[in-house]
């Protein structure tokens, strides 16, 4: 094990209350707090723990996005990544395009492992890791809640609908992480200072030879149907009465 790539996405912070623009053209992003996608933080934490257990393992954080995505990559460097690569673009990036971009980076870097979050909390697509594994022609282990590396293999426990499933994959491989894999560390001030000196390379989709064709067009964005606030009951007897009347119990 020599190199791990962690893919990072800049997303609206999970505490922000999302508002849809009145004209239906998207969600309001002006002045909204942006963060590292929470799943990607977990992905990075896992890579750092593997690095800390091993020797001479390099962790490279890679992101695709606007110039300000450097902020999230600096956070990744402060957490402990060795260097970062920003594929800078102002275009919205679809999962297939993201996968093709990460493939281009992987072909240059030849990592043993690529970690990603299982989904980004903005588009909730849950596609990029699987797509990357497909076009890289390597194994995928999605929704990881436990990762064990030994002898060129990874044993990954996955959170699936029925419970937990364990698979073994040969490295190099793509692993996408779920919430219970670990708890990411907090960054300390000295780490933030140190991160400023770490290398952050900026490149572009064009330089990597990735097509920017729009494959899926978002024609409208609207708020979800709101549920009506219901009735409050004063005690259990009244609750049971209401539910019986509705034929629910």
């Amino acid at each position: 094990m020599q190199k791990i790539i962690v893919c990072i996405k800049r997303v609206v912070d999970y505490n922000v209350r999302i508002r849809v623009k009145p004209d239906g053209s998207g969600v309001m992003l002006d002045g909204v707090k942006m963060s590292v996608n929470p799943f990607d933080e977990i992905a990075l934490e896992e890579a750092l723990r593997i690095k800390e257990r091993g020797t001479n393992i390099e962790v490279v954080a890679v992101s695709i996005g606007v110039a300000d995505t450097q902020q999230q990559l600096r956070t990744a460097l402060a957490m402990g990544a060795d260097r970062a690569i920003l594929v800078q673009t102002d275009l919205p990036v679809e999962p297939l395009t993201a996968a093709q971009t990460f493939l281009a980076v992987a072909n240059k870097e030849n990592p043993d492992l690529i970690f990603l979050g299982k989904q980004a909390i903005d588009d909730d697509a849950n596609q990029t890791g699987q797509m990357l594994a497909a076009i890289w022609q390597r194994p995928q282990a999605t929704y990881a809640s436990k990762v064990e590396i030994s002898g060129g293999k990874a044993s990954v426990t996955r959170e699936v609908d029925a419970g937990l499933e364990t698979i073994e994959v040969d490295l190099p491989a793509v692993v996408t992480v779920d919430l219970r894999l670990n708890e990411p560390r907090y960054v300390k001030l000295p780490d933030i200072m140190k991160a400023k000196k770490k290398p952050l390379e900026v490149t572009s989709l064009e330089a990597l030879g990735v097509s920017t064709a729009v494959l899926l067009k978002t024609v409208k964005t609207e708020p979800p149907a709101q549920r009506q606030k219901g009735v409050m009951v004063k005690d259990v007897a009244e609750l049971v009465g209401v539910l019986k009347k509705k034929g629910l119990i």
Partner: peptide, 15 residues
């Protein structure tokens, strides 16, 4: 389809 944890519903046109 839903995005942002179901807080924004988008209509998507595929090719």
């Amino acid at each position: 389809r839903p995005t942002y944890a179901g807080n924004a519903i988008v209509t998507v046109q595929a090719d």
